[in-house]
Amino acid sequence: MDLFFLGTGAGMPAKLRNVTSIALKLLEERGAVWLFDVGEATQHQILHTSLKPRRIEKIFITHLHGDHIYGLPGLLSSRSFQGGESEVTVYGPKGIKEYIEMSLSLSQTYLKYPLSIIEISEGIIFEDDQFIVEARLLEHGIPSYGYRIMEKDRPGTLLADKLIEAGVKPGPIFRQIKNGESITLEDGRVLDPNEFLGPEQKGRVVTILGDTRYCENALMLAKEADLLIHEATFSKGEETLAYDYFHSTTYQAADIARKAGCKQLCLTHISSRYDRNDWRELVAEAMETFPNTDIAEDFKEIHIPLR
């Protein structure tokens, strides 16, 4: 599981930072990529990476401000010409369905793959045998959501040597034990899978927040996350300005990470008022409150290791 930043700026494209888009790479887990927001020129950013649009399985939109959605119609359209045939599901606030359908209709764009659009409300918006995704409303000028991506616990590592000692040859039984199934052998012995599996691997949690003021729902979504992605449009000391514009400061992002018991914080949605020389200071401000803090940059990748 890796998180890759395609755009990390605030408001409008800048020379050093494109507007918001984040890719959660789940290539080992499900051979797929999930996108969070698709700002203008996201598909151009992808051209400079190894990401394959045909791998995009889900797109989660935090809110409908242009710097988070203007790249969506183009990306959906281009995917048809880049080998994309599998279904894509887009999740987002009310209005996302009309925006996509109108854009594709007026441009007479035909998609060669199935597209599902789900307008969300608070709560669990997706669950399968691997992941749960929860959404909660944040505090912004328009409805803005944060997403908590929870990986379900995995069975422990198969103790193959122990199975061989028990007289079991590699084959289907190994797979059944790995899946947690009890097996009755030809000689009548019953194999308890718990005796042949290592400790259960705890699932990872990634929290990706849309634009927001400091708020309680951000804290809830971030609880004990392995990685928190939090906007930091303003520097420490500009809390009044951040509040007036429905955004957060470096200190507020760090305070959420500290109170939530996160393992790592990465600041994003950085205003173009801060140049490259300022970025280190932004990180230092957050580290005063939450030491394990980093700052996003376009094309930066963060690995999220197993617990």
Rank of each mutant, 00 (worst) to 15 (best):
N217Q: 13
G156I: 02
L159H: 05
R154G: 03
D192S: 14
S121Y: 01
G171E: 13
T184F: 03
K162H: 07
L221C: 06
G167W: 13
N217L: 01
G146P: 01
Y145E: 03
G198D: 14
F126W: 08
L197C: 08
L197W: 11
P199R: 08
T157E: 15
P170E: 08
T207Y: 04
N179G: 14
I125T: 11
Y145R: 01
G146Q: 12
E181Q: 15
L158C: 09
Y147S: 08
N217F: 02
S182P: 01
E165R: 12
Y147Q: 10
I173Y: 03
K223Y: 13
I142M: 14
L163W: 04
A135I: 05
R213I: 00
Y214G: 01
F131W: 15
R213K: 13
G141W: 03
E200V: 14
R175T: 06
V190Q: 15
F126T: 09
K223N: 13
F196N: 03
R136F: 04
L219H: 10
L219T: 04
F131V: 07
V205F: 01
A218M: 09
R175S: 10
A222C: 11
G156H: 11
P199N: 13
G180D: 15
T207V: 00
I149W: 08
M220A: 12
V190E: 15
D153L: 08
Q130V: 08
Q176F: 12
G180Y: 11
R136I: 00
I120C: 05
L138F: 09
L137Q: 13
I183G: 09
G210V: 02
N179H: 11
T207K: 07
Q201P: 00
F196S: 02
G141P: 00
F131G: 03
S121E: 15
T212G: 03
D153Q: 06
E134F: 05
G203H: 04
E216I: 04
N179Y: 04
R136S: 09
F196D: 11
D211A: 11
P172R: 05
S121Q: 15
S121K: 13
C215R: 10
L209K: 03
N217C: 02
I177A: 05
L185E: 07
P170M: 12
P143L: 03
I208G: 01
L219G: 03
A160W: 09
I173C: 07
E127C: 02
D211T: 09
A218F: 06
L221V: 01
K223E: 15
I142C: 08
A135D: 14
I208P: 01
V205K: 07
E200W: 04
L185P: 02
E186M: 09
S182I: 00
A166T: 04
I183F: 07
A160Y: 10
G141V: 02
D187C: 02
T212H: 05
K202I: 12
G203D: 11
Y214Q: 05
S144V: 05
M150A: 09
F196M: 05
I164L: 11
F196I: 00
P193R: 09
G141H: 14
V133I: 15
R189F: 04
M150G: 03
T157M: 12
Q176G: 01
I177N: 04
R213W: 02
Y214A: 06
V205E: 03
T212E: 12
R175H: 11
I164W: 13
F131L: 14
E181T: 01
M220L: 12
E181H: 11
L191F: 03
K178G: 10
R175C: 00
P155T: 06
K178N: 08
L138K: 01
T157N: 14
